[in-house]
């Protein structure tokens, strides 16, 4: 039996080592890891951080970066009520139609609408940003090796270029961005936003908050997933224990 467990464990190790390569970060720079409220198997999103992060997104990021797959109604998960969500949505105009005259028209966004993009299309976004396309952010945490740690590292990674490195006009030196040259100007400044809850808006704090918000945007079902996972695994442990006892009983007469 022990030998069997050993071989099975070996199989598990082989499987794990097989699985590893795909998940490794592509770039050579080590990304420092941060503590996240949503990390670990019991992790949940810190609601206050989500709301502060949303404020940073609205005030700082939203002028260039869309949030295409998030709908205003989803903000309910951040703790906003229906009227607040309606008001947030109504700040933006969306094109709807055609109306009875066959014309397209502008109307205020509704909670059922997805976040309105700052640019009508990618070409317009490039044209407004010197040829660089500001990525849509609703999947940014899932779409970058390193995830939340990487987003935080880039937001806080603006530095003066080391001597010998020349950064062309319109580019900025960033310690963690692949290739170290990023077209996005440093987005965060101390007290660039004023938090309603009195939290000091340092660059680190803003970066942390907006990253938490973006992690939520990437995977709004994270909390439900982890809760369901704990219940599933607890159930399976009990069930597998019973199955093992059953198997032992059935096999008791085999010699």
């Amino acid at each position: 039996m022990i030998a069997r467990i050993k071989t099975l464990a070996a199989a598990g190790l082989v499987a794990a080592s097989l699985a590893a390569p795909a998940a490794m970060a592509a770039e050579g720079v080590a990304i420092p890891s941060q503590e996240w409220s949503f990390g670990g198997i019991f992790g949940t999103f810190d609601r206050a951080a989500l709301q502060r992060g949303f404020q940073v997104y609205q005030n700082v990021c939203a002028s260039c970066h869309g949030l295409d797959y998030v709908a205003y109604r989803n903000l309910e998960q951040l703790g906003y009520n229906e009227d607040e969500i309606k008001a947030i949505a109504a700040e933006k105009q969306v094109t709807d139609g055609p109306n009875d005259e066959g014309e397209m028209f502008e109307r205020p966004a509704k909670p059922s609408d997805r976040f309105v993009s700052p640019f009508p299309n990618d070409a317009a976004a490039r044209a407004a940003n010197g040829g660089a396309l500001p990525p849509e952010l609703s999947l940014i945490v899932d779409a970058r090796a390193g995830g939340a740690d990487y987003i935080y590292a880039v937001l806080t990674g603006y530095q003066d270029a080391p001597s010998g490195v020349t950064v062309p006009d319109g580019m900025y030196y960033n310690a963690y961005f692949p290739g170290h040259q990023i077209a996005m100007p440093p987005p965060l400044f101390p007290d660039g936003v004023t938090y309603g809850d009195g939290t000091a808006a340092t660059i680190a704090q803003q970066a942390k908050d907006v990253t938490t918000f973006l992690a939520w945007a990437s995977e709004p079902n994270l909390e439900e997933r982890k809760r369901a996972g704990l219940m599933t695994i607890l159930f399976l442990l009990v069930f597998t224990g019973l199955l093992y006892a059953t198997k032992r009983k059935i096999w008791a007469d085999v010699h």
Partner: peptide, 13 residues
């Protein structure tokens, strides 16, 4: 009892 318990838990699952 063991068989019934296992089957019942399996059915719930």
């Amino acid at each position: 009892f063991l068989y019934v318990a296992t089957a019942a838990v399996g059915a719930v699952g």
